[in-house]
Nucleic acid binder design. Structure first.
Ligand SMILES: [Zn+2]
Ligand SMILES: [Zn+2]
Ligand SMILES: [Zn+2]
Ligand SMILES: [Zn+2]
Lengths: 173, 173
DNA sequence: CCTTGACCTGTTATGATATAACATACATAT
DNA sequence: ATATGTATGTTATATCATAACAGGTCAAGG
């Protein structure tokens, strides 16, 4: 599963839902970034400075960011400040499976499971705006079954759920 | 299930997937429209001329239409030709469960099962652009289970799959 | 009757998201 | 060194969506 080796507990590598839990996020982000480097190498593509920086920006929190927000951050770091700069970096990340596009939010989020083949299912908290990637296999299986029943072949799917995370649910109560 | 009564076979009322099948679409659309009238009555809201016309336009095919396309059609029929005219009519239809918003396409499609409580799952054919609403219950159950496993409560969900319908699959082969 | 208030329609204006097209720079391979 | 593919940057424009306000309709209550 995880293609990096270190001894200590690595929540980012085991738990699918840490977006909603308190955790060592610096470690979490570092870990994903390291895996991203490895994946780029493997795939024979270049994780150039803008692209890497865009990923770092997405990794600052478990939230989705709009392209223009990412752009603003990139520009502040000395990169170009026109929309294609952000869109191209984000597009690259999505193509390489390093980020996901959340259509419901017109926004992008870093993938927390890069390299693992996964049809993502997103849980979006309307309280704190955190986005988690949930266990998708059963959902995808149900979807494939429903589609197959009428002869439809699913190639790509978005599953995006809006609701409340445990913390926000408790806060609301 | 179906809240209208007529004797003959009514594919629109039984089959979930007729978007991809040849069928008597005039009947199909008429039927939905009649149910829409009934639903508006029930809900104590008004299916005014613009709103009804917008629904008719969506019902012309089993495809999603962008708000601006709907607007153009409405304007041609003598209604206002500014974006809010279309967006408001569409918003009304969505609120009343008479249409769905397909986020992946930035577009809207008539609901083929108005009045039936259903969390929709959309199957979007990339060949012919038809959009079908599939059996969603198992998908939704899987999603709820995955969410519950990490304490997340799903309030609303979009499930949108892109792929090939039976006809386009055959055509491609 | 006629006023009030809710709601629907329409307009102007602007905001937010996304891409096309082209120019320049950089990498790598002959 | 030159050619080739790829990456970055810019200008301009396309596409999608909403805020804010003005006028019209209609039914309920005075
Ligand atoms: Zn984290
Ligand atoms: Zn939350
Ligand atoms: Zn039909
Ligand atoms: Zn098709």
């Amino acid at each position: 599963m995880s293609n990096h080796a270190h001894d200590h507990d690595c929540p980012g590598c085991s738990s699918p839902d840490l977006a909603f839990s308190r955790h060592d996020h610096a470690h979490c982000a570092q870990d994903v970034l390291a895996r991203a480097d490895a994946i780029a190498e493997e795939n024979g593509v270049r994780l150039t400075p803008v692209r890497r920086r865009a990923l770092e920006i997405l990794l600052e929190s478990h939230r989705a960011m709009g392209a223009y927000d990412v752009l603003q951050r990139l520009a502040a770091d000395g990169f170009g400040n026109q929309p294609p700069v952000a869109y191209r970096a984000l597009e690259f990340l999505v193509e390489q499976g390093l980020a996901h596009r959340i259509r419901r939010l017109n926004a992008f989020a870093a993938c927390m499971h890069p390299g693992e083949d996964h049809a993502p299912v997103f849980l979006i908290c309307r309280g704190c705006n955190a986005v988690a990637e949930a266990q998708a296999a059963p959902v995808r299986a149900a979807l494939d079954a429903a589609a197959a029943a009428i002869g439809f072949s699913v190639e790509r799917a978005n599953v995006e759920a809006l609701g409340l995370c445990p913390a926000c649910k408790e806060a609301a109560a």
